[in-house]
């Protein structure tokens, strides 16, 4: 029995399934580190996916699709900012609202524009993000183990996959090595300290939610133009919430966020792979259990049984300038 191809296949789909989570998770990271809770990742991702699918079909370009996805998701992020930063509304309520607006609008507009039951038409060729062959992949394929890993696991993904992984160190760098990141982390912990240091709290937070919009739009574009060949209604299927869970799991830090997303992606890949296959020792694991596992793990984490996830201290609280 040859295990390697099986493992490679599972890991390969782990990567594919992790990417939307990763992009959405990093998206949420910017907003939440700035003290704005965002349970509207799902909605922004969905709207982004729809915009990507539509624009890619109309213009025949995946890149224009990506651009539109980002524009639309940023617009929704700004709505969230308007409610929760400018009007100091309830951030949870605002996030819920955005999820519904996106869920409904994507179907209505999709039906109105394309009349395919809420789908966007299939895109292909330059309308999609296609697999990129890493240099030398074909040549190295026959090298045992390492060559296979390189050719079948590392190579052959879309450009967005590589960009998503690149976003992890970039986010880390932005957060810990730039002025913007320093201020972002500060405003999520103690906005009064930022305010007395002469920095505008609202403007800082608006910039954070814009970053959230950009990345959640990219997550949506990945779903529509890389993982699939067009938008399908409700195609996010709760990934925005899993990303949120991963963010909590990672304790709002970029590198652990990547591992959390890979873990949740792996669980997903495994549950697809294992459907009905019994495991040694435990027997047949219901696929639904695997699907619920990210949520169960997050609850256990939140309950403080495995480490403590302490959110940014000022998270969820509108800043009112007062001494």
């Amino acid at each position: 029995m040859d295990f390697l191809p099986t493992i490679i296949t599972v890991l390969d789909s782990t990567i594919r399934l992790s990417i939307p989570l990763l992009l959405a998770c990093l998206a949420g990271l910017y907003s939440e580190r700035s003290g704005i809770f965002d349970i509207g990742l799902e909605g922004k991702m969905l709207a982004g996916a729809f915009a990507a699918g539509s624009a890619a079909f109309v213009f025949g370009s995946a890149w224009i699709g990506l651009g539109m996805a980002i524009l639309v998701a940023v617009a929704l992020a700004l709505v969230h900012g308007f409610a929760s930063i400018t009007h100091r509304g309830n951030q949870i309520v605002s996030g819920v609202a955005i999820n519904f607006i996106a869920a409904g609008a994507t179907i209505i507009l999709g039906q109105a524009w394309f009349a395919q039951g809420g789908r966007t038409p299939q895109v292909s060729g330059p309308g999609r993000f296609n697999a990129v062959e890493l240099p030398g992949a074909a040549a190295l394929r026959d090298v045992p183990v390492l060559g296979t890993i390189y050719a079948d696991l590392l190579s052959g993904h879309t450009i967005l996959v590589y960009l998503a992984f690149l976003t992890v160190p970039v986010t880390w760098w932005v957060l810990y090595r730039t002025r913007f990141g320093l201020r972002l982390r500060a405003v999520g912990e103690n906005p009064a300290a930022v305010d007395t240091a002469g920095i505008s709290v609202p403007w800082l937070r608006y910039r954070a939610v814009i970053c959230t919009g950009i990345l959640s739009g990219a997550a949506g574009a990945y779903l529509a133009l890389a993982m699939n060949a067009g938008f399908v209604k409700d195609m996010t299927a709760g990934r925005g919430y899993i990303a949120l869970a991963a963010l909590i799991f990672a304790k709002w830090r970029p590198v652990p966020a990547m591992f959390a997303c890979l873990l949740f992606g792996f669980l997903d890949a495994l549950s697809i792979r294992l459907q009905g296959t019994p495991l040694p020792l435990v027997g047949r694991v219901p696929v639904q259990f695997m699907q619920a596992l990210p949520y169960i793990l997050t609850v256990i984490l939140l309950a403080g049984f495995i480490g403590k996830a302490i959110p940014p201290r000022a998270g969820g609280v509108p800043y009112v300038k007062e001494r």
Binding site: G89, A97, F100, A102, G104, I108, G118
Partner: peptide
């Protein structure tokens, strides 16, 4: 035909936005 029942979901979201967050 251009409007499906999902219109309600939008309205629901808008109601939550304007009667809740805003």
């Amino acid at each position: 035909p251009a409007i499906s029942r999902d219109m309600i979901v939008i309205i629901q979201g808008l109601v939550i936005l304007f009667a809740g967050a805003l």
